[in-house]
């Protein structure tokens, strides 16, 4: 019998209403239904979540580490993109 590994899936869990789904980890499963159930059993057994997304890892396209200079360094010296040049009056709280 041919032994094949089940495909790898990335798991995203939303922990509470109003929060984003966050990457929780990955797991093996034969299909999407099994991936959700496995995710339920592996990643939500201690009440971590109220919603699960799974996506096959092969469908995720990632930026290449080799390109990180070109992609990210140009943002480094553009301080004016950060809203740090405003004086916030003392009366305004929670900013």
């Amino acid at each position: 019998m041919e032994k094949k590994n089940w495909p790898l899936w990335e798991v995203f869990i939303r922990s509470r209403q109003g929060l984003h789904h966050k990457h929780a980890g990955s797991l093996h499963a034969a299909d999407e239904q099994m991936a959700i159930e496995n995710a339920r059993d592996v990643y939500t057994r201690r009440n971590e979540g109220i919603s699960i997304w799974v996506v096959e890892s092969k469908h995720i396209h990632a930026s290449s580490p080799a390109e990180s200079e070109a992609l990210f360094d140009p943002a480094n010296d553009k301080v004016y993109r950060h809203p740090t040049f405003y004086d916030i009056p003392d009366e305004i709280k929670h900013m």
Binding site: H28, A29, E37, N38, D41, V42, R45
Partner: peptide, 11 residues
Amino acid sequence: PILEQDIALTN
């Protein structure tokens, strides 16, 4: 048979 099903059965 695999880690995920091991956890599922023990759940």
